[in-house]
């Protein structure tokens, strides 16, 4: 493969450029489309509600109110045994959910019925378990295609780990987070901090969420108290 045009979007330069969640949405969507899957969901594996519940979803193109149906149909496609043991899987598995017979497909309530589901286990270097689930109205993939999807999923997940998950696990505040904690300690609201720093309120809230988690705080006041106690802001 010598032509740059032959490299699919999700495996090309955009992969090395990805830095935020929307960039990863773009990559995963492109990867799913490349392999003729309509839907994708990246989620943390849940031991309590294997393979995962709605709260564990990290990035998806499945509408929020359709997610429980997506997970239910995934379990049905993989079979109860595989779905329950998904948290222990190390290699991809796939299955097809039964189509509802006798009704036109556009009138069927569950748009995932009759879909092929591909479940790809993913791991962080610390051993935290995630999975990428792809689904679509297509035939089940053969071993070669599963291997290709697995490799692409691992590459995207590695980059996600590097750019986002390590940040989430790190206990150290970034320069921007410290700046926002400092303004919070001055009594400023998210909207006020957004105006001061020329950012969106969403960005400010994301930084506060990250700082709350990193400092092991329970709310903003607690976050400021910990930051003051630890000398992170004066």
């Amino acid at each position: 493969m010598t032509s740059a045009a032959a490299v699919p979007f999700h495996a090309g330069p955009e992969l090395s450029r990805a830095i935020n969640r929307t960039d990863f949405f773009r990559l995963l969507k492109a990867a799913a489309q490349h392999y003729n899957f309509a839907n994708f969901t990246l989620a943390r594996i849940s031991e309590a509600a294997a393979p995962f519940g709605e709260r564990e979803v990290v990035i998806t193109n499945v509408a929020e109110r359709r997610m429980s149906l997506f997970v239910k149909t995934l379990k049905e496609a993989l079979g109860t045994a595989k779905a329950r043991t998904a948290q222990f899987l190390t290699t991809p598995v796939h299955g097809k959910s039964a189509a509802i017979e006798g009704y036109p497909s556009d009138l069927v309530f569950n748009e995932f019925s009759g879909s092929t589901f591909l479940f790809i286990p993913l791991f962080t270097p610390e051993g935290r378990r995630y999975c990428l689930v792809l689904s679509g109205q297509r035939q089940e993939p053969d071993q070669g295609e599963v291997a290709d999807v697995l490799l692409d999923a691992m590459r995207i997940f590695d980059k996600l780990y590097e750019e986002i998950l390590t940040q989430e696990m790190s206990g150290r505040l970034t320069q921007r987070e410290t700046e926002i904690v400092k303004w919070t300690s001055e009594g400023k609201t998210s909207a006020e901090i957004a105006i001061i720093l020329g950012l969106s309120e969403h960005t400010v809230n994301s930084h506060i969420t990250a700082a709350v988690r990193k400092l092991d705080a329970v709310n903003r006041v607690h976050m400021v108290a910990i930051a003051l106690r630890n000398g992170l802001v004066s």
Binding site: G187, S190, N205, T209, V212, V218, N219, R220, V221, M223
Partner: peptide, 15 residues
């Protein structure tokens, strides 16, 4: 992601 996202109630601008 950016418009209808929920901020947890317990750490809104409570102070």
């Amino acid at each position: 992601e950016y418009v209808t996202y929920d901020v947890p109630d317990f750490w809104k601008d409570d102070y």
